[in-house]
């Protein structure tokens, strides 16, 4: 799969402070790419550079294999974290204005807006002033304005902040649908559960440096610690427990279990396989639960940041 966006060795300094230190990321076409990192890591600087709001001090940005040019902004849709609308403008004319700024003609913009307004069932908002809208309503409008010119690349910075769960789900579904229609999505957030649900690739940024990137499933494999969660049924639970504790590194588990069952976490030595463990366990009793513990994005995030801090 080719990369829609390539960021190569980008450096950005504000005075003496380095916001981005030799940053390189590749965003595969048609994927949802999670840009993760703690506050002040440099995510917003990177996003602003991709949007050509600020210029990098050095480095290259390529869109579709070609150097990013000012005219390319019509191929990018950006929903910033700090987002708002003109309060005293009417919903319709504001949407029209923003669409035209993205390079759509008036008639095209009207057509697209009608489609989206119908889709979100907000057609009757057209003549309302923005200040009459609730925060959630305004967010919907901002979402529409971001995506309506059908950009190749969509960039969402904390898109779900301020949404109630129903609207957040609606937006999530729209993002996935847009991806299925061929758009590439860069998705910057702190909310790791939405990363799990949406992102195929991630890059983790901390203190101006990229510390991790790649396919989320691959990264999870890297971070897994051969830990298995087991629930086993036996007549003598305590005996099984001491046996296991003698043979493996174990930890207690909080998986729900019934009377006469043992729930436990077992760490497998690196040279052993899960099959061996399974067959060993089957001699001890009947297994009702056997799962390899894959770390979730949240754990990876915290672990990677901690490691990075230690390395300094």
């Amino acid at each position: 799969m080719s990369n829609l966006l390539e960021v190569q060795n980008v450096i950005k300094k504000y005075g003496t402070y380095t916001a981005l230190n030799n940053m390189s990321i590749d965003v595969p076409e048609g994927s949802v790419f999670g840009l993760l990192g703690p506050n002040g890591a440099g995510k917003t600087s990177l996003i602003r550079i991709i949007n050509q709001i600020i210029m990098p001090d050095s480095g290259l940005i390529k869109l579709d294999g070609k150097l990013l040019l000012p005219k390319d902004i019509q191929h990018i849709g950006y929903l910033p974290e700090e987002r708002g609308l003109y309060k005293s403008m009417k919903v319709g004319e504001q949407a029209l204005y923003l669409a035209q700024l993205k390079g759509l003609s008036k008639s095209e913009a009207l057509k697209k807006l009608k489609y989206w307004f119908d889709k979100f069932e907000i057609g009757d908002w057209w003549n309302k002033k923005v200040q009459e809208l609730s925060k959630g309503m305004a967010q919907k409008l901002q979402f529409i304005v971001t995506v309506m010119h059908q950009p190749k690349l969509l960039i969402f910075d904390e898109p779900f902040s301020g949404f109630d769960p129903i609207n957040a789900n609606l937006i999530k579904d729209e993002i996935l649908q847009l991806r299925d229609e061929g758009a590439t999505v860069i998705f910057s957030t702190h909310r790791m559960e939405s990363v799990e649900e949406l992102c195929e690739y991630i890059a983790l940024i901390d203190k101006s440096n990229k510390i991790l990137d790649g396919k989320l499933s691959d990264i999870k494999q890297q971070f897994k610690s051969n830990l298995f969660e087991v629930v086993i049924k036996s007549d003598n639970v305590n005996l099984v427990k001491t046996d296991l504790m003698g043979k493996f590194m174990t930890a207690s588990s909080n998986v729900p279990f019934k009377e006469g069952e043992l729930a436990i976490k077992i760490e497998l030595p690196n040279n052993d396989t899960s099959n061996n463990l399974l067959s060993y366990l089957s001699t001890k009793g009947s297994i009702s639960h056997f799962v390899e513990m894959i770390p979730d994005a949240n754990e990876i995030f915290i672990k990677a940041i901690h490691q990075n801090n230690k390395n300094e």
Binding site: N51, Q52, I53, I73, I76, Y78, L79, P80, E82, R83, G84, L85, Y86, K87, L98, L101, K102, Q142, V145
Partner: peptide, 11 residues
């Protein structure tokens, strides 16, 4: 009103 970043991503 925080519209500025939306606008300057277009112009």
């Amino acid at each position: 009103s925080r519209i500025i970043e939306v606008i300057i991503s277009s112009v």
